[in-house]
Simulated assay, not measured.
Amino acid sequence: MTAQRALDCNPCVVWRWTSCAPDAPAQARTALRRALVELDFDCEVISDAVLAVSELVTNATRYAPGPYEMRLRRTATEVICEVEDHNPRIPEIPDFPAEAPYAPSEENLGGGLDALCALLSERGRGLHIVHELTNGAWGFCSQASTKIVWFALPCTRGRSGPR
């Protein structure tokens, strides 16, 4: 999926916040879950979207100035979530290894506490998580003074079907 395809449909603002918002990732998860439940999305789509947006909101509030905005878009086949911040710089995209990204490396086996802490570190995993949850359907768009990070998930519907 291209970034342009992600931006073609009309957005719906789900939540706005500033750097002063307490526990922004938790608030974003709650706001997105409510919106997707109200739109009758499948539980698996909701769970994956909520986890992915938590990673994007964490990165936005950690590395970019606000204010911030989370938007939701829907096409006939997918739901697209966007997080906008006020840093137009696109970060370096990490390489995504073909094998499990967090298996112990040979050089760290038996490496003591430092090797264990490096393996268990929570930093640097967010985009890997988003990549896995979305099967690679995510990306960045940079505008004059803002950046949008987006991901897309298949639009599986709940039991009651379209409204």
Rank of each mutant, 00 (worst) to 15 (best):
V57L: 03
T58Q: 11
T58C: 08
N59W: 04
A60W: 09
R62Q: 09
Y63H: 14
Y63S: 00
Y63R: 01
A64P: 02
P65R: 14
P65C: 11
P65F: 04
G66E: 06
G66Q: 07
P67W: 12
Y68V: 07
E69F: 03
R71I: 04
R71D: 09
R71M: 12
L72E: 03
L72Q: 08
L72T: 09
R73W: 05
R74S: 11
R74W: 00
T75C: 03
A76H: 11
V79R: 02
V79E: 04
I80M: 02
E82N: 09
E82V: 03
E82Q: 13
V83C: 15
E84Y: 07
D85Q: 07
D85A: 05
D85C: 08
H86W: 02
H86S: 13
H86E: 13
P88Q: 14
P88T: 12
R89N: 12
R89E: 15
P91A: 04
E92S: 06
I93A: 10
P94S: 00
P94D: 00
P94I: 00
P97F: 03
E99Y: 05
E99L: 10
P101Y: 06
P101K: 11
Y102F: 15
A103F: 01
P104A: 15
S105F: 08
E106S: 12
E106H: 13
L109A: 13
L109H: 07
G110M: 09
G111N: 06
G112N: 05
L113N: 06
D114E: 13
A118V: 06
S121W: 04
S121N: 10
E122H: 12
E122S: 07
R125M: 04
G126S: 13
G126T: 01
G126W: 03
L127D: 06
H128P: 02
H128D: 07
I129F: 00
I129Y: 00
V130L: 05
E132A: 14
E132N: 13
T134E: 10
N135D: 13
G136E: 08
F140N: 06
F140H: 15
S142N: 03
Q143F: 11
Q143I: 12
